[in-house]
Design a protein around this nucleic acid. Structure first.
Lengths: 244, 244
DNA sequence: CGCCAGTTTGATATAGGTCAAGTGACGTGG
DNA sequence: CCACGTCACTTGACCTATATCAAACTGGCG
């Protein structure tokens, strides 16, 4: 499995259509340092480029203990932090929800690679834009959608992002978040998340077995009003694809 | 006033402490194209670097008409869009709430300037990080704070950002947003914004005369639980300042 | 076996939404 | 200069989505 990390973690970068095979090849020759992160622990890649290889992590406020707001869910293939771009110390911290693996490359290595292959920088930067768009979508979700819509939207987004990484099929994927954690992310109480999920099940949009979720994509998307534009990397020359 | 634009609009970049006087000097010699934007109209700087010089704008979802969610308030000195960094077509659009002036510089000009003066790029990128942090703060505000706290927090943030630009003094500044617009931004109904502002006035944390607001900063911050860390550009070598 | 974390259920409370009507300021055209 | 329309703000009455509290249930694990 370890040798698969190379190709796998670049899939997210790759699927933006900005990279040529040679770019991916070059990326995979970087000096990547694997890192294991224990469930529930926090980590901070600093100015390294850090890509999540497996597991599930969230970004949350750095403040003291207690229930903190989560501002993003980090999935395999996602860039954990953009401090390597912005140089600013983040006000948020990463927390692994499950045991995670991440791959890190030092800022210097990335810089020299990027100087040779600017497409890689472009791909990373457009990830940054997508990540920002996801946060903005969360704002609209929390402030305008009902609990049912919000939860459905969350599941649609996860499915979309996981499928892009080959981690979801036919609306099926596994999700290691407790209902309480989902609640923190969506600004709902754990109890209400529970009832909302029940409602989605009752309507046949969702079925669960343990971690394993199956969505009725059609129905779920119509409940959520899900339009995945914001998750894709449109540019002037390569307009957003609406086929997803 | 026009000739002040040069120095003035760079104040935001300048106050991050990343730029030397020569950098600001160099910035001001860029070929800036001024632009006037009529109130209520939308605009899109594309890949130009676009800095708001005066007025008030918001970032909002690009979708059809009707009440759309706002995801950010853009103040003078702020960078309107980071498309020039990310290259991605944004899913959001800028809308002027009042008549605005903005200064634009073309991507090519910026690139060549930045090659000579990397500190400028760093300053721009750390703005990007701050803007993202502001959005994240909005998420936590909407999902965890009460209407009163949220509104107070919003006002504290505005005061902080305006003061940094020399546009607020002693908690006084003017704000050309209707209560309905504030409501859209904060995820509250216009009616509730109204009652919330009344409550703030009743407590003596706020007084208003037309557009002109005066905050009792001490009280307002304590209501809001306002900690401005997220608005400043901390780095490893220049840690966040807590004096604000 | 018993504990613990997670989920489920029921009962109750409340923050904030919605609707409707009224006020006040300001601008425009007659 | 006044009548009118518009837009923002205000107020009151009512309603509902969601929070909160409390307790029971479940399943895995030491």
């Amino acid at each position: 499995m370890d040798e698969d990390f190379g190709p796998l973690i670049f899939r997210r970068l790759w699927c933006g259509r900005k990279l040529k095979p040679e770019d991916v090849e070059a990326l995979s020759h970087l000096h990547w340092v694997p890192q294991s992160i224990a469930a529930k622990s926090t980590f901070n890649p600093g100015t390294n480029l850090c890509i999540l290889a497996s597991g599930l992590a969230v970004r949350q406020r750095a403040e003291g203990p207690g229930v903190r707001q989560m501002t993003a869910v980090v999935l395999p293939g996602d860039t954990c932090s953009y401090e390597f771009v912005t140089g600013s110390a983040p006000t948020t911290v990463l927390r692994a929800l499950t045991d995670c693996k991440a791959m890190q490359a030092s800022l210097e290595d990335v810089v020299s690679l990027v100087e040779q292959r600017p497409a890689i920088l472009q791909a990373l930067l457009s990830h940054l834009a997508v990540d920002h768009a996801v946060t903005e979508e969360l704002v609209t979700s929390i402030s305008t959608r009902s609990a049912l819509e919000r939860t459905a939207h969350f599941l649609c987004e996860l499915e979309f992002r996981l499928r892009r990484m080959g981690l979801a099929n036919n609306g099926q994927f596994s999700l290691s978040m407790t209902q309480a954690e989902i609640g923190v992310y969506l600004g709902l109480s754990a109890v209400h998340v529970n009832r909302t999920l029940q409602e989605l099940r009752k309507r046949g949009a969702l079925s669960t077995r343990g971690n394993r979720l199956t969505l009725d994509l059609e129905q779920m998307r119509s409940i959520a009003g899900f339009v995945p534009d914001y998750l894709t990397e449109a540019t002037a020359d390569a307009p957003r694809r609406f086929d997803a």
